[in-house]
Write a protein that binds this DNA or RNA. Structure first.
Length: 490
RNA sequence: GGUACCGUGGCCGAGAGGCUAGGCAAGGCUCUGCAAAAGCUUCUACAGCAGUUCGAAUCUGCUCGGUACCUCCA
């Protein structure tokens, strides 16, 4: 284990930042609630999965062997919890005259493509709800056997009030149970539940319902919290280290998930609950139902009405990582533009790194920089502070490049290793402007040589023409002491 | 209506009782044929009011403003 690993994590369960101690080091089990694949993922979803991607990457970087499980919800959930309405996948299938599994396939592929676009690593296991119907039926049986559920007209409900008498049902959300029970807000929809907080484990399929499976209680489909309980237990055990998801899942989905696990196994399933905050647009949560969501391609092409132009995936990733995962982050042109510039500056410095030569003494403190980066990351994955520290490093690199400072080989190696590890491995950023093509590089060298020759004979009209022309096609020439270099701009 | 959270300089966004956040933008300087890039540098903020304290952006109370959850949502 890396000696730097005194990692602290904010735990929603305790509302405190706690030292991270895995159950079976060096192994770490992490479960994150994935998407329901009935439509395209939007940037808010991307933010959450990007946050967990960095968490996954950093845990691995610290030397942990992480099993990262992220489900794909492909069994339709009802549009409301009140037992009325259609399931979302079924509805979409009917509207588009497709088989539900065609809908599932389309949006699963879209989801994976988007994840790859933003350089999110694939999880270790990506289980689907429909692939675990048997496990969910078994779990329902067990909960029934244990007395925490009841059948009502072919639907199995979880008995929240009974459970809450024995276990702290609202522990995660911090809600007051009595207030929840007595909340006068009318949810509408008559159903067969005994208690207003009860939720379905298994739902009887109506004749028109497309996605259905046989069960001991007739044909039906699983309730919308059950898959996560069943699959996390299957792949990570009855008790595991980390469970994550968006903040909006806390009061209902995760609360019910915990209840199901305890009712089934009599064990608290998760030690550390991590929740990511929302991406907002003009201060308002980005969500499908509010209709203010940005799709990844709208962002990249700039086709969204609220955008002046497009932004690259890495610009967006960098933008997201400049805010802490537990804060809301507001999406705007100005913020994206600032992130783009900053990201470029960071990557320009990274590109200089291989060219730096060691000196006979060190005039910069690389070890201090390294410490501050790890201190930030160990403090609940504080990427904005880590990035701030990285910009100290950018200054170092530029100063070294200008020959105004020097580092001995050991320190230089440390600086290079730090940037490699943090920028690429942990933050998951990547160079996207550099063509990295030796032919292009050769061509550019030829052009820059011609320009240098023109400059040498003081033919500035020609040299400026070359520079302006390159700029017009998106290549920026940078004149340095050691000659000219180039980089691609957007 | 209930329950939480938030309000930081031109913008984004960290921090969390005394100690520089950082990025972008803007101004100045260095370098340069000119520019760009790069470097140096300037800009000192914490919604308002009251309180606790030697000391508060950071703690407490109130006020105002905003958001989230309570209903599918990452």
């Amino acid at each position: 284990m890396n000696s730097r690993s005194n990692l602290k994590i904010y735990n929603t369960l305790t509302r405190k930042t706690e030292l991270f101690e895995p159950i079976h080091p060096p192994f770490v089990g992490m479960y994150v609630c994935g998407p329901t694949v009935y439509s395209n993922v939007h940037l808010g979803n991307v933010r959450t999965f990007t946050s967990f991607d960095v968490i996954f990457r950093y845990l691995q970087h610290l030397g942990y062997k992480v099993r990262y499980v992220r489900n794909v919800t492909d069994a339709g959930h009802l549009e409301s919890d009140a037992d009325v309405g259609e399931d979302k996948i079924g509805k979409k299938a009917r509207l588009e005259q497709l088989e539900p599994m065609e809908i599932v396939q389309r949006y699963t592929v879209d989801f994976r493509n988007v994840m790859a676009l933003f350089n999110n690593l694939p999880p270790s296991i990506e289980p689907t709800a429909t692939g675990h119907i048997i496990e969910q039926i078994e779990m329902t049986k067990q909960i029934l056997n244990n007395g925490y559920a009841y059948e009502s007209n072919g639907t199995i409900y979880f008995d929240v009030e009974k459970f809450a008498k024995e276990y702290p049902y609202t522990e995660l959300s911090g809600r007051n149970l009595d207030e929840l029970l007595n909340n006068t807000r009318d949810l509408g929809g008559q159903d067969d539940k005994k208690g207003r907080l009860d939720f379905a484990l298994w739902i009887k399929a109506k004749p028109e319902h497309l996605m259905r499976w046989p069960s001991p209680w007739g044909e039906g489909f699983p309730g919308w919290h059950l898959e996560c309980s069943a699959m996390s237990a299957k792949y990570l055990g009855n008790q595991f280290d980390i469970h994550g998801g968006g903040l909006d899942l806390v009061p209902t989905h995760h609360t019910n998930e915990i209840a199901q696990n305890i009712a089934c196994h009599h064990e608290k399933p998760v030690n550390y609950w991590i929740h990511t905050n929302m991406l907002t647009v003009n201060g308002q949560k980005m969500s499908k139902s509010l209709g203010n969501s940005f799709l990844p391609h709208e962002l990249i092409t700039g086709s969204h009405p609220l955008l002046d132009r497009g932004y690259s995936p890495m610009t967006v990733r960098f933008f997201m990582l400049q805010a802490h995962y537990r804060s809301t982050l507001d999406f705007s042109n100005e913020a994206l533009q600032a992130a783009e510039k900053g990201f470029q500056r960071l990557m320009n410095a990274v590109a200089l790194l291989p060219k730096l030569q060691a000196g006979t003494q060190s005039t910069l403190k690389v070890a201090d920089l390294e410490d501050s980066v790890y201190e930030a990351l160990n403090d609940d994955f504080n990427t904005p502070i880590a990035i701030a520290a990285l910009f100290e490093g950018v200054r170092m690199i530029n100063t070294l490049n200008d020959g105004k400072a020097s580092l001995i080989q050991e320190d230089l190696d440390k600086l290079k290793a730090l940037f490699q590890a943090i920028v690429f491995d942990v933050l998951g950023l990547k160079e996207e402007n550099q063509a990295d093509n030796s032919k292009v590089d050769g061509l550019m060298q030829l052009i820059l040589d011609q320009r240098a020759a023109a400059k040498a004979r003081r033919d500035f009209a020609s040299s400026d023409q070359i520079r302006d022309h390159l700029k017009a096609i998106g290549i920026e020439v940078k004149d340095g002491k050691e000659g000219s270099t180039y980089s691609f701009i957007n």
